[in-house]
Design a protein around this nucleic acid. Structure first.
Lengths: 196, 196
DNA sequence: CATAAAAGATACCGTTTAGTATTTTTGCAA
DNA sequence: TTGCAAAAATACTAAACGGTATCTTTTATG
């Protein structure tokens, strides 16, 4: 029972790495079993279809990782301006899970799968909804504690900030360099300060 | 010489529509020739490979369209705050070429092709560079004419605004609704006004 | 240590893919 | 009208794809 769980996890992890780099559709099951050194029989023992594995990647790999790096950091800090800025700075400049050249895995999945696979869509939508919820709550709390102006619309700001993040990751991917992150972070800071 | 040019263009246009909806990799040449009612012989008479056609789509379809809807609108208006806001409002709410549910075609191409095709990368990079250039120039002009504070960093703002656009298109695609565009535009307006 | 079930290996199937080779039609100049 | 190249239609190939069927090895348990 334990060995099986191990192989399942290595399949998911290695498959995620491949998919993060090459995309879901261009990563074949043969690719996956080649790099994991697991056979096709083993693969189909653990997953009924390729898409079932894709969803497992989202739920078992992406979700916990993103929760710990996108959501938990927001819940620790008091000042939402610092919280959001530090979160972005960490995500863009320091996080080792997210690589510039490959963009944001959640965003990649969205772009690729959304037009034709509703299950992936739902799984990813849930992730962003959670992020939205926590960030909005952080801002609302900041309004009460006097860190943020009362007339600021928390949901609007959340959407605006999240959009910027998704977009800048796209830029980083396109230019294949973290250089663009620095001016983005600077402008983010001055935007956030305008909410005081 | 004229009939040939016509079939070439219909191939490109119909192929673009398919790719915009389904993605480049999932759109097969058989799909394309089926919807264009052009035979494979005709297709390969006009394009050596699928990728050559893909690049032709970027250069002959995407580029002129995006230039007229992303770049030219910026050059007409005086006040950069209005110029940028109206541009975004048009792109998100009014433009008929860009559909919510399918995201931004340039962004889609980037996400899909960037990891493994350098030619696509360059073609797309050039497009965004042009957009950056024009928007930055608009802001700089606005600084001189007193529409924008002198201490504002034009390039930073451009990057920030463009990132937001790319990101919100991703959101629209994910939620499959223009609803998210409205709060985004509201917050964009108040951000732009903070640059006065 | 025997045995059944879990886990994994191997060979293969049907289909789809991008691309090619060959043939046929079309448009136009002489 | 004929000649001939440009354009398009048809028929095909080889490889890759996701998925399945079948067989073998491990592992847990009496």
């Amino acid at each position: 029972m334990k060995k099986a769980e191990t192989t399942r996890l290595t399949i998911l992890q290695k498959a995620f790495e491949l998919i993060y780099v090459k995309g879901y559709l261009t990563t074949s099951i043969d690719d996956i079993i080649a790099t994991t050194e697991v056979t096709k029989g083993a693969f189909y023992y653990h997953f009924k279809t390729k898409d079932e594995m894709g969803l497992a990647i989202i739920n078992d790999i992406l979700k916990p990782t993103l929760i710990s790096s996108f959501i938990q950091p927001l819940q620790n800090e008091q000042n939402p301006i610092d919280a959001i800025y530090n979160l972005m700075d960490n995500l863009l400049m320091k996080n080792e899970f997210l690589k510039v050249e490959y963009g944001c895995p959640a965003s990649n999945f969205t772009q690729e799968m959304t037009p034709w696979n509703a299950d992936f869509n739902n799984a990813l939508n849930e992730l962003t909804k959670q992020w939205t919820k926590v960030m909005t709550a952080t801002i609302e709390k900041g309004k009460k504690n006097g860190f943020i102006r009362e007339d600021v619309n928390a949901k609007q700001v959340t959407l605006f900030v999240m959009s910027g993040y998704w977009g800048i990751r796209n830029f980083g991917k396109l230019e294949n360099s973290k250089k663009v992150y620095l001016p983005y972070l600077k402008e983010l800071k001055s935007y956030l300060n305008s909410l005081k």
